[in-house]
Amino acid sequence: MENRTVIELRAVKKTFRDFWYRPVVEAVKGLDLTVHRGEVFGLLGPNGSGKSTTIKMLLGLLHPTAGEIRVLGAPPRDTQTKARIGYLPEVSQLHPFLTPRETLMYYASLFGMTHAVARQRTEELLGMVDLRHAADRAVGRFSKGMARRVGLAQALINAPELLVLDEPTSGLDPIGCREVKDLVHVLAKSGVTVLMTSHLLADVEDVCDRVAILDRGELRAEGRVGDLLRKSDAVRFQVEGLSEQEASALRNAIETRAGRAVQQDYPSMSLETFFLQTVAADGRMREFEMAPFLKAAKRTPDRESDA
């Protein structure tokens, strides 16, 4: 059980202080959290709830005021551990004068990849995030969505075991959001552990196995998405092709049998589904170039270096 744990936080606190070391805000208050291998874990919460602070502590960018953090069995600042993590920041922080190709080569070299391997991985990821057409333009002039794609590609450059995504769909259009969610599904199937935050609850609901809800630095709820959302005292039937009379008769029968009022409605598809179907009809939806990335994801950086 122990070796299945990828992220472990025990009584973690983070207090931001001013120049005189006086406490300004307590961003995280005694957080306990465990993420297991192969999970897609969602960290939810309103603005200022401590989601990004928690993620930055996991990456060793912020120091916890108290408590213990273990990531992949080591302290967050361990560079060997960081080599196994992919990180997409909340805002895509890129060198504005570099092109996407140069950006990916830069990040690849931070992982100690050989030039040939870095070049190959860069081309695969540029194809995956659909940026080959803009691969030689400076990222400083990119739209937020395009910069987000570059950020996503850099997070995957090392075929990580643990992928940390801070607001991954921020700035993306509905197609991009769908692609990111598809990507998370694919990565999870290949055994990658994903920790993500999002304001868009539907996104989290779509992809996460478990979620934790933070509010003002405190853990309010944690568990499997299905368990948290299940209404145990209600049952819902969905029948297709009933006429109005048949539906009314069925409702009356249930009400008579159960002795309670029954709610009846007509389910509708989500706006996202409708949008994607509409765009797909125009042929704008594209298949993710997953195949090369999945091959890459199954390789480890060490084995590549030997190649």
């Binding site: 930055k56 990456l59 060997q80 960081k82 080599a83 920041p89 922080q93 890129l94 990040y107 931070l110």
Partner: peptide, 14 residues
């Protein structure tokens, strides 16, 4: 300030 340092230090760079 821009965050590119954090992005680099999120990688295996001490």
């Amino acid at each position: 300030a821009r965050g590119t340092a954090a992005a680099a230090l999120g990688k295996p760079v001490s």
